[in-house]
Simulated assay, not measured.
Amino acid sequence: MIRVLICDDHAVVRSGLTMLLHGKHDIEVVGEASEGDEAIRMALELRPEVVLMDLSMPHGKDGMTATAELKKELPDTAVLILTMHDDDEYLFRAIQIGASGYILKNAPHEELLAAIQSIAAGNAYLYPTATKRLMSEYLQRMKQGGEPAGAYETLSEREKEILGWIAKGYSNKEIADNLVISVKTVETHKSNLMEKLGLKTRPELIKFALKKGLLNFE
Rank of each mutant, 00 (worst) to 15 (best):
S118V: 01
L155P: 15
V29A: 00
T188W: 04
A114G: 08
D54Y: 05
K200R: 15
P75R: 12
L20H: 03
T131K: 12
E73M: 10
G145S: 08
H22L: 04
F92H: 14
K200E: 15
E38N: 05
I40R: 00
L17K: 10
K173E: 11
V51L: 09
P75Q: 10
S56Q: 13
T131Y: 08
I116A: 04
D62R: 15
S118T: 12
W165K: 12
E204R: 07
H25S: 13
A94D: 06
L179Q: 10
A167I: 02
E157T: 10
E69D: 10
M135G: 13
E218P: 00
G101R: 00
R93N: 13
E153M: 10
T131R: 12
R133M: 09
T131Q: 14
M64L: 15
Y102T: 02
N172A: 11
V180Q: 15
N123L: 01
D37L: 09
P48F: 00
E28H: 09
S136T: 11
Y125T: 00
Y170E: 11
A130P: 05
H10A: 07
W165E: 13
A151T: 07
G63K: 01
A149K: 15
Y138Q: 12
T154K: 15
L126V: 03
N216C: 07
I175L: 08
G101Q: 04
S171A: 11
Y152L: 14
I97W: 04
M135K: 10
M135I: 08
E49K: 11
S182L: 07
G23K: 03
K72F: 01
L21A: 02
T201N: 03
V183C: 08
A167G: 13
G23M: 03
K105V: 02
Y125F: 11
E89A: 11
E161D: 14
I162T: 08
G198W: 00
L20Q: 03
Q144N: 14
N123S: 09
P148G: 09
H10S: 06
K196W: 06
M142N: 14
A151N: 10
I166T: 12
L82P: 01
L21F: 01
T131L: 15
E49C: 05
H85Q: 14
N123C: 02
S136H: 11
T201K: 10
R14N: 04
E204Y: 02
E110R: 11
G146Y: 07
L46W: 00
E218A: 14
L21N: 01
I166Q: 05
G213S: 07
L46N: 04
L82E: 00
E187Y: 03
I206K: 02
A124S: 13
L80V: 05
M1G: 14
L70D: 00
K24D: 06
S15C: 08
E110K: 13
V29S: 00
G122Y: 03
L134H: 10
I103V: 09
E159C: 06
L193W: 06
H85L: 12
V13I: 13
E32I: 04
N216I: 02
E187G: 05
E35M: 06
K105I: 01
L70F: 00
T65I: 04
I119H: 05
I181S: 09
L55C: 11
D177L: 14
D86I: 01
A130S: 13
D26Y: 06
V12Y: 10
